[in-house]
């Protein structure tokens, strides 16, 4: 299996542990990653909001680069997935629009033909790799670990664009993977909700309140950690958890794992390889629990 890997800005910026764990996990699973080094930011919704055509053009460029690689795009970010899915749907639905966008790619000798598929690691593992194949690679079953899924808005909604209308199970993949790792998925209200990251700089109180609400909700349901396929959710849930604890007036201490980190633990990778020490909220309790 081979993908045109789109690591996204955050795994190359604020969450280097994601980049590292992604590389290790894919290697352990035998997934070949061809990194799209020249691809730009998806715009994370911010550019779409300012100038939709500009954002769509940058994404079309990424898709064209993937066509050159001859493989589907693989992301490790819910936000990237959402923005690229929306852009791709728009470009594929409207040939005239695609042609207009392609005019801006032409000077670089690129053209998006409309054939690229974009798949998050979460989807790729369940739909392409197969849960059974994954289970066969598990070396360290995470028995006893209660992990609460936190999907991130962009990989869920709108369901029409994110393929959940045809594949409703996509809203259960995290639980399925958590179980495949040998851990117990925790059900709680917050799993589909917003982490608050997009309004962090606009209304920090509300943003941090969201962090506190969902982490405490998961904690009340017995979770030892949260697992997220979205590094932006990670930034907020992890980085702003101390503030959230202050706002809520109680200790939270909830480790926030990137999806590849959880998978890596089950695959037998070391905590160091997965850079579990590069978090704001200590992941020590999780490591001890699974003897990593």
């Amino acid at each position: 299996m081979r993908y045109a890997w789109y690591p996204g800005c955050v795994s190359q910026g604020g969450c280097p542990e994601l980049y590292a764990s992604m590389v290790k996990v894919c290697s352990a699973l035998g997934i070949e990653l061809e990194e799209l080094k020249g691809a730009a930011c998806t715009g994370a919704g911010v550019l779409t909001e300012r100038n939709p055509e500009l954002a769509d053009t940058l994404n079309a460029r990424t898709f064209a680069l993937a066509e050159q690689v001859g493989a589907p795009v693989l992301t490790n970010c819910s936000t990237c997935q959402g923005v690229m899915s929306q852009a791709n749907a728009k470009l594929k639905a409207d040939p005239k629009y695609l042609a207009r966008v392609n005019q801006h790619l032409a000077p670089e000798g690129l053209e998006y033909k409309g054939t690229t598929e974009v798949r998050h690691l979460l989807w790729a593992l369940v739909e392409d790799y197969g849960l059974d194949n994954f289970k066969a690679k598990v070396q360290r079953p995470l028995t006893g670990l209660k992990a609460a899924p936190f999907y991130g808005c962009y990989i869920l909604r709108p369901t029409k664009v994110l393929g959940l209308d045809e594949k409703p199970a996509r809203s259960r993949y995290l639980e399925m993977l958590i179980a495949a790792c040998g851990a117990d998925p925790v059900d709680y209200d917050g799993k589909f909700k917003c982490c608050g990251f997009p309004i962090l700089t606009l209304n920090e109180k509300n943003s941090v309140n969201m962090v506190g609400t969902h982490t405490l909700d998961a904690k009340a349901h017995g979770a030892h950690c949260l697992v997220t396929p979205c590094p932006l959710c990670h930034l907020n849930l992890d980085g702003f958890q101390p503030k959230a604890a202050g706002l809520k007036g109680q200790q939270i201490n909830m480790p926030i794992l990137h999806l590849p980190q959880l998978l890596g633990l089950a695959l037998g990778l070391s905590a160091k390889e997965l850079r579990l020490n590069h978090h704001i909220m200590s992941t020590k309790a999780v490591m001890e629990m699974v003897n990593a």
Binding site: G45, G82, C153, Y154, L156, R157, P158, T159, K193, C194, G196, P198, I199, L202, N203, N206, S207, M210
Partner: peptide
């Protein structure tokens, strides 16, 4: 308008 967190719940 700037308090919206862009979560798509309302669109959905």
């Amino acid at each position: 308008i700037w308090d919206c967190t862009h979560c798509f719940y309302c669109v959905q």
